[in-house]
Simulated assay, not measured.
Amino acid sequence: MKPDVSVIIPAWNEAGTIEQTLCHFQAQAAHRWKEILSFEIIVVDDGSRDNTYQAAWPWVDKMVRHRRRRGKGAALQSGVAEARGELLLFLDADLQATAGEALVLIEPLLRREADMAIAKLPPSGVKAGFGLVKGLARRGIRRLSGYETEAPLSGQRAVRADRLRELRNFARGFGVEVALTIDAACSGMRIVELDVPITHRETGRDWHGFLHRGRQFAAVGFTLLSRWKERKRTWVSSDRSSI
């Protein structure tokens, strides 16, 4: 039987968290939607060096394995290629006990009120960065698409499969969510953002945290530059065709 919802979880070295994420998600899905919706769970192991594959295997319907790390965008693309559901739900692998809270994201899609729903996570309880990555992402999304977002970096989102497949390929690395929001808004998709009490692993103000955010800042900047160049080519082509 074709599933109603395909849950796609990209994972890289998440052996310590993914089993709890899958276990809690399945429990909540069975509790809330057992008689109404059917789910398939797809995990994409993006070249992990630990036991992510073995930890996830007993809990999933499909397992995709990359021989080497290709980035989050490529992992999502591989998951979408395997998905059969009319709705797609993207989740991070480290949500653990809060994974089931993401189910609220499919509700506006079921009511046909939106084509994409994005989770707004609660404020962090850990002193992290200074908001530079989030600020860059918000400004870039607004300038390139006109869409005002409060959750530009959220990886927890639901989208109609048919509308998603109208878009271009996923961006690579940490810029994938930013590009996805820009592409969705520019294509006319109806986007909603919902407060969802999800928590996941966070980086602090240590060397590892600053290095992670530095890479994230560079990836978001590269994604915005790539999308800007594509939009510019479209504008130039449009101007020439109107002459």
Rank of each mutant, 00 (worst) to 15 (best):
S241L: 10
D50V: 02
L164C: 03
K229S: 11
R157G: 01
A99H: 08
R172Y: 10
R65D: 07
V104L: 12
G79D: 10
E107V: 15
K127L: 15
T203N: 12
G47A: 03
A137N: 06
I141K: 02
W33H: 15
S187Q: 11
G146Q: 09
T52W: 01
V126C: 13
R32S: 13
D162Y: 03
W12M: 04
E101W: 00
M116D: 01
N13C: 02
R163C: 03
S226T: 15
H212R: 13
A75T: 06
T234Q: 13
Q96T: 15
A74K: 10
S187P: 04
I41L: 10
Q28L: 06
A75D: 06
G73C: 04
S154F: 02
R168I: 01
H200P: 05
R165S: 00
S124Y: 10
C23Y: 15
E101R: 05
R163V: 03
S154A: 11
C23D: 11
L211H: 13
R205C: 13
I191T: 01
E35F: 07
E107A: 13
K120F: 05
R227K: 09
L89Q: 14
R32M: 14
A219I: 00
V176A: 09
A83M: 06
L110R: 15
V220R: 04
G129Q: 09
D50Q: 02
A27Y: 12
R205G: 14
R240W: 08
L87W: 10
P197A: 11
H31V: 07
V236N: 00
A171E: 09
V60I: 12
T181S: 04
L144A: 02
V192E: 02
K127F: 11
P3K: 06
A75C: 07
L37V: 14
P123S: 10
G214C: 08
Y147W: 15
I42R: 01
D94G: 07
K2D: 12
S242K: 11
G131I: 07
W33F: 15
E166A: 04
H200Q: 15
E82N: 03
M116K: 00
W12I: 05
R190E: 09
E177K: 05
